[in-house]
Design a protein around this nucleic acid. Structure first.
Length: 585
RNA sequence: GGUGGCGUAGUUCAGUUGGUUAGAAUGCCGGCCUGUCACGCCGGAGGUCGCGAGUUCGAGUCUCGUCGUCACCGCCA
């Protein structure tokens, strides 16, 4: 036995016990005549002491020790003469009687402390050292607890946890696939799943009734702080349910996770139609922690010879509370901010609602005090508030002013990480027009059912068909989404036709699913949560990297193991592959 | 594919208008120190200023390219 206790458990009640600890040396404080060693493991830190009573050989051994050495230490627990109230073991220390180096350590490239001196690159390269730090490990402990809560809740609701294959088939819809060459089937490839979508529907046909899985998914697209090429979903499907049943079940799961892991009670989740989210928040994932809703003032601003507004399809405004005293510099800063290519607005019009009831705007030349008063009433602006107005093409400006709203929320400190505001966004469009390929794409996926009352529109105005599709959004983060599925092979065929598949293509790609539907498919619906995002939201982080033990960087590289990498010529040959690398221009 | 930030000691950063020998903190090494817990004090070592070209009498500093990294846009059903 290497140890009798962990480094986090000894207390004043353990005084005079002969104990053995094992762990990493956090720090040595050498006083010449005496020394202190902080010994660390996952559970905490315990102080070891060497003084005049300690065996001389131990004093000599001490010279060899350094940070991050793994040692085994035997000694007597005793009360400290000067206590440290900052740590749980701070009332005791270990008078050493024996010390053994289990494993020496080179000087680590950065300090293993909460406030490390290491930068992101270095910490990623030595991820196993970074994971020794409390602040990093605690995120993975939270992740473990949340996964446990998911299983506890769904098992209690009679869900069956089922694994689905990882080597599957490439499909044309959705994200780019990661592919895996098949040695036994020359020239053919597996794909890694973007999600277990079709398999979980087949499990419903199989009568499983309730399925879930905490499962890796893979998408070969460009990355972000909240997107990794491999990520984890809480994937679920249910039979004989409608949309409300699914939302209630997973609202229950979400509340359970908040309560179990953060001890937070959240309100019932409001349902917001997609159209309302776009209209009021300029986003399909609204941050409802604060108001500052977008108002459509297009009709109020026309006919004053202000050509920018007169020619605009849409004019939107938000009201920033208490910002009437923004300086010229601040307003210029906001204007520059919206003119960045990422937002792409031409400009920004402001109206200051002064304390004395007058208005000062950047368009005073065109609009009277009375005109501006009408605007202020429309956007519910009071004295002391600042109205920000953007105009242009409707879809673009709604999104842009939505971004401005979030930026103002940041500046005003309205996006508190300790407040959680979940909601369901419902009634998504079934299809969206893709300019590039000049055809409709499924907004959610091709198995999403249209709303019954909208089916008749499928032939006439496909773009207006609403789907039985829903997203869970918390604090402006898209946590998950799902839909009621098509379970009728004829309706599914119609859907494929709308998506531009020929009968033959549909049969080749998804024939297995349509065939399955011929043998008694139950009505079914499902949902999937992005587990990494949910954990990072709970942990108050902006990136999912810190809730993944071994994440990849912006370019999809693992800089610790240095992947991806080239493979041996023999491997290529075995797979019947030849490389044809494009020369860089 | 695009836009922007960053790249200087082991590490995190500073470095003025282009000008002599590139600094600080921390870490590391050595010395002193019996109650520290971010110990303290004294001393020391440590640099291909990412890489390559260019402008210039002179480049860490300016220009172009390139590589790495981060954030965002496109993309991600």
């Amino acid at each position: 036995m290497y140890r009798t206790h962990t480094c986090g458990e000894l207390r004043i009640a353990d005084i005079n016990k002969e104990i053995t600890l094992a762990g990493w040396i956090q720090r040595i404080r050498d006083f010449g005549g005496m020394s202190f060693i902080d010994l660390r493991d996952r559970y905490g830190i315990t102080q070891l002491v060497v003084d005049e009573n300690t065996d001389k050989t131990i004093v000599e051994q001490l010279e060899e020790l350094g940070r991050e050495f793994v040692i085994q230490a035997k000694g007597l627990v005793r009360e400290r003469s000067s206590k440290n109230t900052k740590i749980p073991t701070g009332e005791i220390e270990i008078a050493l009687t024996e010390i053994k180096v289990l494993s020496p350590s080179e000087v680590p490239p950065f300090t293993i402390q909460d406030d490390t001196d290491g930068g992101d690159d270095l910490r990623m390269k030595y991820r196993y050292l970074d994971l020794r730090r409390n602040v990093v490990r605690k995120n993975l402990v939270l992740r473990s607890k949340m996964a446990h809560a998911v299983r506890t809740y769904l098992n209690a609701q009679d869900f069956i946890e089922t694994e689905t294959p990882v080597l599957i088939k490439s499909t044309p819809e959705g994200a780019r696939d990661f592919v895996v060459p098949s040695r036994m089937n020359p020239g053919e490839f597996y794909a890694l799943p973007q999600s277990p979508q079709t398999f979980k529907q087949l499990l419903m046909v199989a009568g499983f009734d309730r399925y879930y899985q905490i499962v890796k998914c893979f998408r070969d697209e460009d990355l972000r702080a909240d997107r990794q090429p491999e990520f984890t979903q809480i994937d679920c499907e249910m039979s004989f349910v409608d949309q409300k049943d699914v939302l209630n079940m997973f609202e229950g799961l979400t509340k359970y996770m908040f309560k179990e892991t953060l001890n937070v009670d959240v309100d019932d989740f409001p349902w917001m139609p997609y159209s309302e989210a776009i209209e009021k928040y300029g986003s399909d994932k609204p941050d409802t922690r604060f108001e500052m809703l977008i108002n459509n003032i297009t009709d109020l601003v026309k006919g004053n010879n202000f050509v920018v507004f007169d020619s605009a399809e849409y004019v939107g405004a938000i009201c920033a509370k208490g910002c009437a005293d923004y300086s010229r510099k601040q307003l210029d800063g906001l204007t520059k901010w919206v003119q960045r290519p990422q937002i792409g607005a031409k400009g920004l019009v402001y109206v200051k609602c002064n304390k004395d009831g007058s208005f000062k705007s950047s368009v005073d030349k065109f609009y009277s005090q009375d005109d501006l008063k009408v605007w202020a009433e429309k956007v519910d602006a009071k004295a002391g508030d600042l109205i920000l107005v953007m105009s242009g093409e409707k879809d673009h400006i709604q999104g842009a002013i939505g971004e401005l709203r979030l930026e103002m929320g940041n500046q005003l400190g309205l996006r508190d990480k300790n407040i959680f505001k979940p909601l369901w966004v419902v009634d998504f469009p079934l299809l969206e027009w893709d300019e590039e390929s000049q055809r409709f794409h499924a907004m959610h996926h091709p198995f999403t059912s249209p709303k019954v009352e909208d089916i008749k529109l499928m032939d006439t105005e496909p773009g207006k068909v609403r789907a039985n599709a829903y997203d869970l959004v918390i604090n402006g983060v898209e946590i998950g989404g799902g839909s009621v599925r098509i379970f009728d092979s004829e309706l599914q065929a119609k859907m494929f036709k709308l998506l531009g598949f020929t009968k033959e293509e549909a049969q080749a790609q998804f024939g297995f699913l349509m065939n399955a539907f011929k043998y008694g498919a139950p009505p079914h619906a499902g949902i999937a949560f992005g587990f990494d995002r949910l954990v990072s939201l709970f942990a108050g982080l902006d990136t999912i990297r810190d809730v993944i033990a071994f994440p990849k960087n912006n370019a999809g590289r693992d800089i610790m193991i240095d992947s991806p990498s080239v493979i041996a010529e023999a491997q290529l040959e075995e797979l019947n592959l030849k490389l044809d690398l494009k020369e860089k221009e």
